[in-house]
Nucleic acid binder design. Structure first.
Length: 469
RNA sequence: GGUCCCAUCGUUUAAUGGUUAGGACGCCAGGUUUUCAUCCUGGUAAUCCGGGUUCGAUUCCCGGUGGGAUCACCA
């Protein structure tokens, strides 16, 4: 396969939409699979929506996700001359024309068209202007835009995920390509840039499908090569409407902030509406790249199933190496990660779906929290029994040496040996022991807790429980 | 309203002109376990509707219905 040059071209809104991540991922997979390049382009031609620092935060998020781009960022607002040259060429070839219509007139026209149930479309009033009239208006500095002149005919969009889609030019509006502030609209900028940057594959959200014929018409006017298009389906809310902030997080940064791991996010987001093999859920980045096939992307929208993301994130948290876990967990913890906390993390990783849950899980390990004495008592026993068993097991633990605390199995073995020797029930001993150590009704096993605390603190907590009884 | 896109369990996906329509998440039940989580086993649940083509349609075609996108000097 020929090397593909792909791009991700977000508008700088201050955060990365998960849909943006998905098209970025698909583009990245394709570029890497074919030995091509993945390019970042910032589409900031709408100055009214400019957000300070947005580009930097976008780049940081890509970095946090471990996604590198080969070129860029290219910034459209810094490339205005390119667009002007190309707009002038269109004008010279009569493929575009000046329009001096006021916004009021356009709005009024649109309103009328809607009332008569017509498709809102520019009526080409300014196309009737003579060149003298146009020059006069330009000389007097009248506000104007440039519109592309849609020729007659039809355009077939060859889409990698949807097949051929036909559009009749009579349904297409004479799109504004240069705004009155001199900035190009998306339609001109994207066509010019994709050409200048030798983009071979345009992968974007399906909301762009209706404007793709405009882009193809422009490419033909310029005699540019037409890239391959792939319009991927939208990500949806649980109620199947277009994913929106109102119904959950749409920003990748929000997911990162909650402690979803980059690899989980990448795996989950890229296999929404797409599955490389059909019989697996978990893929490494390398597998996603090697197996990628854009034509396998489904053409229907996909609902974000957060529960599945949670499951997948839990899977990846458990897969982290010890060191990776400590590093990843650090931003989510308010305390220093000392040896005890490290051990606690290794135990509690099993019980969290997101790293942000760690702090709460770890808290009981820090200091002996207060608890009701009743919670020490197993449902099948009484206070006396609990006290007796705690004293017994305390004896066992006091007889152990520090090295015995290195392995959970050793601790479990010793305690279980004691239970068997005394002819006791697991529950009678282990329940009080566990609560004595954790202070909680639900927690990790007493052996794990003993391992985390070590000899001294373990004994201390057990003694405290005994005194409570 | 015009144009366009889409339609398999609740969700996400797989498969095929002939299958008991498969997997995953969730949910339910059982097992392991002192508890929680994990883990293991089992279960629940789907081809939108109507025609056509065909020996046979979930699959191909047409229509309907439903959902979605778009119709800006936003991207």
């Amino acid at each position: 396969m020929k090397p593909a040059r792909t791009r991700i071209a977000p508008s700088p809104t201050g955060y990365m939409h998960v849909g943006t991540l998905r098209t970025a991922l698909f583009s990245y997979f394709l570029a890497h699979q074919t030995g091509g390049q993945f390019i970042l382009r910032i589409e900031d031609t709408d100055r009214t929506r400019f957000v300070e620092g947005a580009t930097e935060s976008l780049i940081k998020t890509f970095k946090d996700l471990g996604i590198e781009f080969d070129e860029g960022p290219f910034v459209q607002s810094e490339r205005l001359t390119e667009y002007k040259i190309h707009a002038d060429r269109l004008l010279a070839d009569s493929n575009a024309y000046y329009c001096f219509c006021s916004r009021d007139r356009l709005e009024e026209m649109r309103k009328q068209q809607q009332e008569t149930k017509q498709t809102p479309k520019y009526d080409r009033a300014c196309l009737k202007l003579t060149s003298d009239e146009i020059q006069k208006k330009l000389d007097s500095g009248e506000n104007h835009v440039i519109r592309m002149k849609i020729p007659e005919g039809e355009t077939i969009v060859k889409d990698l995920v949807r097949g051929n889609v036909k559009f009749n030019h009579s349904d297409i509006d004479d799109q504004v390509i240069v705004k009155s502030d001199g900035y190009p609209t998306y339609h001109l900028a994207v066509v010019v840039d994709d050409f200048l940057m030798n983009i071979t594959h345009v992968i974007r959200g399906e909301e762009w499908l209706p404007s793709t014929p405009k882009h193809i018409i422009l490419q033909k006017m310029f005699d540019f090569d037409i890239p391959q298009f792939a319009h991927v389906p939208l990500l949806l809310n649980p109620d199947k409407t277009k994913l929106s902030k109102r119904q959950g997080d749409v920003a990748v940064e929000d997911y990162l902030k909650k402690g979803y791991l980059p690899q989980a996010l990448i795996n989950f987001i890229s296999t929404l509406g797409y599955n490389p093999t059909g019989d697996r859920e978990v893929y490494t980045m390398q597998e996603l790249i090697d197996l990628f096939d854009i034509t396998k992307v489904k053409s229907s929208g996909a609902v974000m199933n957060i529960e599945k993301l949670d499951w997948m994130n839990n899977h990846y948290i458990k897969e982290l190496s010890d060191e990776e876990l400590f590093v990843m967990a650090k931003p989510f913890l308010s305390m220093e990660i000392d040896k005890t906390i490290q051990k606690a993390l290794l135990i509690e990783r099993e019980r969290v779906n997101r790293l942000e849950e760690l702090e709460e899980k770890i808290t009981p390990y820090l200091k002996a929290t207060s608890y009701a004495k009743e919670s020490l008592i197993w449902k099948k026993a009484d206070a006396l029994d609990a006290k007796k068993n705690l004293e017994g097991v305390l004896g066992v633990i006091e007889n152990l040496n520090d090295p015995d605390f290195d392995k959970i199995e050793t601790l479990e073995g010793e305690v279980k040996k004691y239970i068997e020797r005394e002819g006791l029930q697991n529950g009678n001993v282990l329940w009080p022991l566990r609560v004595a150590l954790s202070g909680q009704e639900k927690s990790a096993s007493p052996f794990e807790l003993l391992w985390v605390f070590g000899r001294e603190q373990g004994i201390e907590r057990i003694k405290k429980a005994i005194s409570l009884l």
